[in-house]
Design a protein around this nucleic acid. Structure first.
Lengths: 353, 353
DNA sequence: AGTCTTTTTGAAAGCGCTTGCAAAGTTTAG
DNA sequence: CTAAACTTTGCAAGCGCTTTCAAAAAGACT
């Protein structure tokens, strides 16, 4: 085999956009190492056996030239982009932000970049986000608590493998990850009941959020388990924000309904509720016990520190990322779930008579 | 000109990775519209005048085939990727998370995708992140409070235009955005002084963070402006977390040093400090006034609601995104700054004698 | 040593789009 | 009415990498 320079390598380089620092290409490496571009590619990707001596020569050339493969070209040729899209509902929520951060780290380690977009809990927005990710040719998509109909998700999974958190959809290119919303909520409510509370209010999340409904279900299940009648009057609507929790608690207090504990669908609502109680001169936990859901890092530092349902953000994120990678690589990830536990702190107390 | 099918369009399509839904290519559009691919490209990008009738035909074909250009191919051919990288120090911090979310929205509108990576305030990490972004061929990089030396940034700006927040580096491919750390801090300290406080403690952020130092400077400037001697004993180290603020306050109280107000370098530290005070039986603001910095959304809902230096996250993010786009498109963005203001709430009070 | 396998390797054809160049079509001028 | 001067448009050559295919090299066997 002649070791001559490829005809292409001698062509004049068109000036690339901007003053991009001269890019080292795979061809230059090939020339330097005295092999063909194909061989370099194969060595770099481990897609075929290659004589040991050439491997060394190529590695040396790569090091010498500081070659870094162009992922764009690689995507175009190879059909995969080594990037995954994450659709998050509200990155401004600390819970999601932290999850995203951890996922990014895990995916980065696996060689993937993450493109994220915020869906804001609206079907249309979510569709647009997905469209965008797809047009960017991501290799897979992670949907955190998607609000799209099941059929659409299955349909979508034909374009890209999907990992869903907080939803369950059965399909081969979809991996669903249960985040224990309902059991977690039940845990919290049962704890309150165990502390002697009977009239437990619930500050709900937005009705359109599936996880919000699941938490309400857990709450109901706990009541039912202890034969405590469920009362609509003790359920007030929130929106997962501090402000929403604050307003909800005020509304609840205005109804005059009596209660000794409140379970909020997330920590932020719980914080808002605590402030409302405080303003009305009610002391937590002496007068009213409060429980949240999520266990944000800041929840250990509220006054008083919040008792809340803890979910390991780290575990959720890492598990999700792993599942995504497995799915992309064609394997079938084992079903997973991350159990919720209860972090008991100082916002709850035994009911006083 | 003959309107014949391009030779290429008839070639057999290699099966692409996964069951990717059949991709419509520009060539198919060209065939459908009865023009050449070049013409389609030119119409799509507006890079040359084209007869009105063809424009219509192409647009019709695009609509009919639901053509969506492949950004990967476009990047490879055109040299730009329509994506920008954002290096954030700690996405787990609500402040950064929210900024990132807003930036994403703004850049999305301008047609750019965002790739983000977390630097964790470490020079090495930051370098690795930048490397990664560069290898992904981003068109520009936004560095939030970078900790890299100026020379390196200038050097870097030759590879990609840069937008820096909280740093000032003069160079043509760099746009620096002042986020008013020092003036903001000064505002807060002056307010406390105006409320009669003289012994004002300061909970600092990590020394390696440039913005942390700037805030300390603002605090010192305020003291100096009122001829109040600066005392090292009133400055305790924090790390921008709730836990750090909590520990810092405990240490401060343990020293027995007297003070009537505390200024924390960020809201999270302030929250931690408030809890520490609470545990020691000190009431905010009756016994001690507390001021934070950042004005996180949750800071309006702490108990008591926190007085803090407000910065418009929205403004910072949008301004940054705009500057990035201008820089990428070769224009020179006007210098910008986002002024900090003081959000006076209930954690501060006039000094009691 | 010669034949049949099995490996290793290179040439070349893409991936889908942009763009320089020159041919074809139009308009204007002489 | 033809030549000169623009405009519009297609051809084809890339962008940097992967991968198929077939040729070359190396082994395995008579």
């Amino acid at each position: 085999m002649k070791k001559k320079t490829t005809s292409r390598s001698s062509r004049k380089r068109r000036v690339t956009a901007a003053s991009q620092v001269l890019a080292v290409t795979l061809e230059m490496v090939a020339t330097e190492a005295g092999v063909s571009p194909s061989t370099v590619s194969r060595i770099l990707n481990g897609t075929a056996r290659v004589r040991e001596s050439k491997v060394r020569a190529v590695n040396a050339a790569v090091a010498k030239l500081q070659f870094r493969p162009n992922p764009v070209a690689r995507s175009l040729a190879g059909g995969k982009s080594m990037s995954v899209g994450v659709v998050i509902q509200a990155i401004e929520s600390p819970f999601y932000a932290e999850t995203l951060a951890t996922m990014e780290k895990a995916l980065f380690r696996a060689g993937y970049s993450v493109l994220f977009v915020s869906g804001h809990w609206r079907e249309d927005d979510e569709r647009r986000c997905i469209e965008h990710l797809l047009s960017r040719r991501v290799d897979g998509i992670i949907l955190m608590t998607s609000c799209l109909p099941e059929q659409e998700l299955i349909q979508l999974s034909r374009s890209a493998p999907l990992v869903l958190t907080g939803r369950h959809v059965a399909s081969d290119r979809i991996c669903s990850l249960d985040v224990d919303n309902s059991p977690g909520a039940r845990l919290a409510a049962e704890y309150l009941i165990g502390q002697g509370h009977q009239r437990i209010a619930f500050i709900a999340g937005p009705v359109e959020h599936p996880d919000s409904t699941q938490r309400l279900d857990g709450y109901k299940a706990a009541l039912a388990g202890s034969h405590i009648p469920f009362s609509r009057k003790l359920v007030v609507a929130g929106d997962y924000t501090d402000a929403g929790g604050y307003a909800a608690m005020n509304r609840l207090l205005d109804t005059g309904e009596s209660f000794t504990a409140v379970f909020a669908a997330n920590d932020q609502s719980a914080c808002g509720a605590m402030l409302a109680l405080h303003r009305r001169g009610l002391e937590v936990p002496r007068d009213i016990s409060v429980v949240g859901f999520d266990d944000l890092p800041s929840s250990s530092f509220t006054i008083p520190p919040l008792t809340t349902v803890h979910r390991s953000i780290n575990e959720i994120a890492v598990t999700t990322a792993e599942a995504m990678v497995e799915l992309i690589e064609g394997r079938t990830p084992a079903p997973r779930a991350t159990p919720a536990t209860l972090a008991i702190r100082e916002s709850t107390a035994r009911r006083r008579d």
